[in-house]
Each structure stands twice: as C-alpha cells, then as structure tokens.
Amino acid sequence: MNMLLDNYDQCQLDNWYWFQEAFTEDELLQIEQIQEPIPFNIAKISHDTDDLEIKRKSEIKWLKKEVPDFKWLYERFITMATEANKSLWKFDLTEIVDDLQYTAYHHNGGHFDWHMDLGSEKYARRKVSITMQLSDPEDYEGGDFEFMIGNEVVKLPRKKGCVILFPSYFLHRVTPVTKGTRKSLVLWIYGPPFR
C-alpha cells in the first residue's frame, strides 16, 4: 500500500513534457514528402455544431498506421510517450486508436479554440496527447499553442521539430494565424478511462 502511495506521490499530473529537437531536418523533410500525396479535409470536431468555424478552422489529413512509410513516426512517438509517462504521469497506456493527424492552420484565421482531447465514448480513453511543430516560427504569425493550467495561460515552444506531450485533460488551444501557415502533427495515446 505504501509503495503504491509513494508511486502516486511522484506523479506530476499538472505538468507537460517536451523534446526540443525530436526530429532532424532530413526527417522533417521526409515527413513533408510522405504526407504530400494525401488530400486535405476540413477539420471537424467530435460533436457537430453550427458554429464550427468559431471553434476550429483548419485543414487536416490522416497518416494511417497501416501505411509502411509512416511506421517509423508511430514508433518514435511511442518511445517519447513512454519516456514522458514514466517520468511524469504514470498512466496506464495501452494503444493508439486514431491515426496521426497532419494539421495546417492558414493565415485566414486558422485556429482551434480552448478544448480538451479527452471526451466521451472512445475519447474517454485518451490519456496522452502529442503535438509536433512542423513549421519554422518565422514562417507564420499568431498560431501560438497554449495551455490553460489553473488560471495561467502558458505559451508553448514554437521550435520546428519540437514535440510536446501532455495529459489529454489539459485545456489547450491554437490562437488565430494572421500570416503564413502553421503545420503540426498530432497523436493520442489511449488507456483505460480515468476513474
């Protein structure tokens, strides 16, 4: 019993983890090349609303798990999630359900308002969210990735190639892009629902 309590005492459930340079320039170029043939779709949110553009405005495409060209990306993200989880949260992580999401937020106000990745039904099993910066910070204006932790808004790093991991219950957003395009990769790691 004490060992279990000690283990939970070491958890940092209100903290996030990041890898400053998780991918090389060659790997980032490879990602751009392998995603290129896949067509974009307008991003939706899990519950349909009439004011979708108020909540989210972006284009997405899915890099499917079963495609061999993408396997190395999934393996890299699993390795990073394992390290972050062992260090901070100690969640029970079991699987990847959704495919990798490649997202583009364009200069016409592309954004995603405050939201959590944790939700109802299958989304109740999301434990760890991962986002990777694909654009150079100089390539766009606005488009800040931010957390709301308590009453504090925390602006996240914009470095190309950095990967940020956080509990899926974190409130987060991407502010409107006013110039250029912000591109990212997003993935979620699942486990049993929080109790």
Rank of each mutant, 00 (worst) to 15 (best):
E27Y: 07
E66C: 01
N15P: 06
V67D: 12
K61V: 06
D26R: 11
E36W: 10
K65P: 02
F40R: 02
K71A: 11
D51L: 10
T24R: 02
F19E: 14
E32S: 15
D48N: 13
L73P: 01
E66G: 03
D50R: 14
K71I: 04
K64L: 12
F70S: 07
D48S: 11
E66P: 03
W16I: 08
L63T: 06
I42K: 12
E36I: 09
K65G: 08
Q33N: 15
K44Y: 13
F19Q: 13
P37D: 12
I54F: 11
E59H: 06
E59S: 07
N41Q: 14
K57D: 06
Q20R: 13
Y74P: 02
K57G: 03
K57V: 02
E32T: 12
L29Q: 09
L52V: 07
K65F: 08
T49A: 02
V67E: 10
K71T: 05
K61Q: 11
E59C: 03
P68Q: 10
W72I: 06
E59M: 01
N15C: 12
L73D: 01
W62Q: 07
W62K: 08
D51P: 00
Q33H: 15
A22M: 03
W72Y: 13
P37F: 13
K61N: 05
K57L: 12
K57E: 05
V67W: 04
Q33S: 15
R56V: 06
E59V: 00
D14E: 13
I54H: 11
I54W: 10
A43E: 04
W16N: 05
Q20L: 10
D48A: 14
I42Q: 11
K44R: 15
I31K: 00
P39W: 03
N41W: 10
Q20W: 10
A43K: 03
E32A: 15
W16A: 05
F19W: 12
E32Y: 10
P39A: 08
P68R: 08
L28I: 01
Q20M: 08
N41D: 14
E21I: 07
A43G: 13
Q33K: 15
F23G: 04
E66L: 04
T24W: 04
E53H: 11
D14P: 02
K71V: 08
D14L: 15
Q33L: 14
D51H: 09
E21D: 14
D50N: 15
E66I: 03
I45E: 13
I38M: 10
H47I: 14
D48W: 09
P37E: 13
K64H: 12
Y17E: 04
I38N: 07
K57N: 06
D69G: 07
L29K: 11
H47V: 14
Q35G: 01
I45L: 08
I45F: 07
K57I: 06
E32Q: 15
V67M: 08
S58E: 00
H47A: 12
I42T: 14
L63E: 00
F40C: 07
F70A: 07
W62D: 04
S58N: 07
I60S: 06
K44A: 12
E32P: 06
F70I: 05
P68S: 11
K57R: 13
Q35L: 05
K71D: 05
W16L: 02
S46N: 09
R56M: 04
I38A: 09
I34D: 00
W18N: 13
L63F: 10
W62V: 05
E25I: 05
P68W: 08
W72S: 07
I31S: 01
I31R: 00
W72K: 04
I42D: 10
Q20A: 13
